[in-house]
Simulated scan of single mutants.
Amino acid sequence: MKRILVTGSNGLLGQKITEKVLAEGRVKLITTSVGANRYPVKAGYEYAEMDILNPEQVKAVIEKYRPDSVIHTAALTNVDACEANKDLCNRLNVDSVATLLSVCEEKNIQLIHLSTDFVFDGKNGPYREEDAVNPVSYYGESKVMAEVLIRNSKANYAILRTILVYGISHDMSRSNIVLWAKAALEKASPINVVNDQWRMPTLAEDLAEACLLAVERDARGIYHISGEDYMSIADLVRKVADYWKLDHSFINEISSASLNQPAKRPEKTGFVLDKAIKDLGYNPHSFEEGLLVLEQQMAG
């Protein structure tokens, strides 16, 4: 059985990988994050504190546990925060990758790196893996820099790009668009939603499954991982309203420009998923099926 080490395991994706491994076995799991383990179940895997900004600690932890694969989920993903603090963005999204690469190359460990649709400019999505990157934000730029480092390395790697991940984490410390829209509409709070950005939202469970498939199939290269349903952000929020029978009249459609966000967003992303379906056996939920998964989890 392969041993995998996950960075950023307190985050949504990290928690979903833990959940999956505990339910299904498949691999031996070591989870790592800054500070204490926030996942409620503590048995069935090992946990180590690891700050990806501390190269000595990263090296020591990986040498201690000797994983076959590292799944690197830790990153600064707040697009406006990356624009405002480029130094921190660089350290978390680029320098951490360089640290992991040096250890993975030396120890012959597969690196599975999470990237984003924001590497594209959004002019002509949905995109294939080989399409030219052209980020419009510093977050996207940092992710391109990390991809270049990885592709120029001698490491065995798989880069999994993904889009607008949604799901429920145990401590609910961070929201996502589905939970935000549902909570606001349940309170009958008016919300502004952009109608000129198109995405293919990704259920966190599907992304966790793709990570494990990439380990099991010893995947190499770049893979596009998302849901299959292509929609505008306004459509997405309307679908959330429909699913939970909430009032549409609180949804106020606006243009991206009117938000005056520090970082620019790509207009139309979305992915062609053929490669992941063929090579990895990836089989995502539909958006409605994803909402059912969330509903069942909320019901406990």
Rank of each mutant, 00 (worst) to 15 (best):
E295Q: 13
I168L: 13
R26C: 03
P190L: 00
M231W: 08
R66E: 12
S169M: 07
G281L: 15
K86G: 11
Y139R: 09
K59W: 02
E130V: 12
E130L: 09
I277H: 01
N54R: 13
G25H: 10
Y127V: 08
V79Y: 05
C89T: 01
V272F: 10
E209C: 02
L291Y: 09
G290D: 13
S33Q: 06
D206C: 10
I163L: 13
L236H: 07
F250C: 06
T31V: 15
F120D: 13
S142V: 05
A75N: 08
V133Q: 13
L212D: 05
A188W: 00
M172W: 11
E289I: 04
I109N: 06
L213R: 06
N10R: 13
N37M: 05
V70S: 04
N85K: 03
L259T: 09
I177S: 03
V119F: 09
F120S: 14
Q15R: 03
A299K: 15
N156R: 11
E106D: 12
K268F: 10
I222C: 08
A183Y: 00
V215D: 14
A132Y: 02
S173G: 07
T269F: 06
T202F: 05
A132S: 10
L291F: 10
G290M: 12
D51R: 11
S69P: 04
D87V: 07
G125H: 07
A81Q: 06
M145H: 09
T99W: 01
E83N: 01
V237P: 08
N85P: 08
I71C: 05
R217K: 15
Y243R: 08
N283E: 09
D235P: 08
E106Q: 11
K16V: 01
L213N: 02
I251H: 05
F118E: 08
L111D: 01
S175E: 15
